[in-house]
């Protein structure tokens, strides 16, 4: 093929994708990082500020207190997903992949249902259910004689974050479930038969044969959870608004970013500081992904069947 024709071919096939991707994804990410190095002036102009914005964000109490608070909350948010969402997803996947299970497709379809719905809808529905006004949650606890346990969990500083996290877990448990379920199905039946002949019961076969074979998937699920959690915004915004109340108890990096950039009742929007927050989020996610790729993934053995 002549050089010119080949080049034209490449431009034709690669051009559109690279253009859209570069302009609307890579350029904005780079521009945001660059933006974070300037400071936004009241007259709309930008001045070079070096790492000044980051210094402000990390050490100036008006900025650093919300920042560390959001970061801490985000870690709690992530930990709850890791400790509840992924184990529950694993359990459900393990049960769903049992041989000769009846209604398998029905369970799978129904349990995955909440994952399909928008976070806005989910958040609001749960807000209604947990609301003391409607009293559904209270009624439920009372049926089991546990009425005294009821509290307006979403409204209390001590429990709001945990409640929001659990609602998010409830919605997204379908994703680890499906991914792990797929990995479990890929394990050949004969391997489980061999384990049965070797004298293992279902549970032992799961722990000793299946689990070691799905570590790569569990690793993938973990890093997906990490990236999604540190990028989360919708649920908190839908349930608690941009102010992530009560008293910033549910503030995570996404809501902090939104407030910083757009401003709110308490402060004016600041594109430069917003960029600085976004750059910090980018850094956190990159560190997480790199740590996973270089520390965890290398130690996980992958198997092909």
């Amino acid at each position: 093929m002549p050089q010119g024709t080949f080049l034209r071919l490449l431009v034709f096939f690669l051009g559109p994708a690279l253009l859209v991707y570069s302009v609307f994804s890579i350029y904005p990410l780079l521009a945001t990082i660059l933006n974070s190095l300037y400071s936004h002036q009241r007259d709309g102009s930008y001045l070079w500020n070096g790492l000044g914005n980051f210094q402000t964000l990390l050490f100036d109490p008006t900025w650093s207190v919300p920042f560390w608070n959001a970061l801490k909350n985000n870690f709690i948010f992530f930990l709850i997903h890791m400790c509840v969402q992924n184990p529950v997803g694993l359990l459900l996947a393990a049960l769903l992949s049992l041989p000769r299970l009846r209604f398998r497709a029905t369970y799978r379809t129904l349990i995955f249902m909440p994952t399909m719905l928008s976070v806005v809808v989910i958040g609001f529905a749960w807000q209604l259910i947990l609301s003391p006004l409607w009293g559904i949650a209270k009624m439920f606890l009372q049926t089991f004689g546990l009425g005294f346990l009821f509290a307006p969990w979403l409204g209390l500083e001590s429990s709001a974050l945990i409640t929001v996290s659990l609602i998010s877990v409830w919605q997204f448990v379908g994703i680890p479930m499906i991914l792990i379920y797929t990995a479990l199905l890929a394990i050949p039946d004969e391997l489980v038969d061999a384990a049965t002949v070797d004298g293992l019961n279902q549970f032992q076969a799961f722990v000793w044969v299946k689990l070691p074979l799905i570590w790569p998937t569990i690793g993938l699920v973990s890093i997906l959870t990490f990236v999604n959690n540190f990028n989360a915004f919708d649920l908190v915004y839908a349930m608690k608004g941009a102010l992530a109340g009560p008293n910033f108890a549910t503030d995570i990096m996404g809501t902090l970013f939104y407030r910083t950039f757009f401003g709110n009742q308490l402060q004016l929007g600041d594109p430069s500081m917003g960029s600085a927050v976004a750059t910090m989020m980018l850094l956190i996610i990159l560190i997480g992904v790199m740590a996973y790729l270089f520390l965890v993934q290398r130690r996980i053995q992958r198997y092909s069947f």
Binding site: Y27, P28, A31, T32, P271, I285
Partner: peptide
Amino acid sequence: LLALYLSVGIMVPIRLGSVAIIQL
């Protein structure tokens, strides 16, 4: 190199570029 360039978008959420996206 191009494949690597594209894989950035799988790992990094595009939301983080929102400030520049709005300006753009």
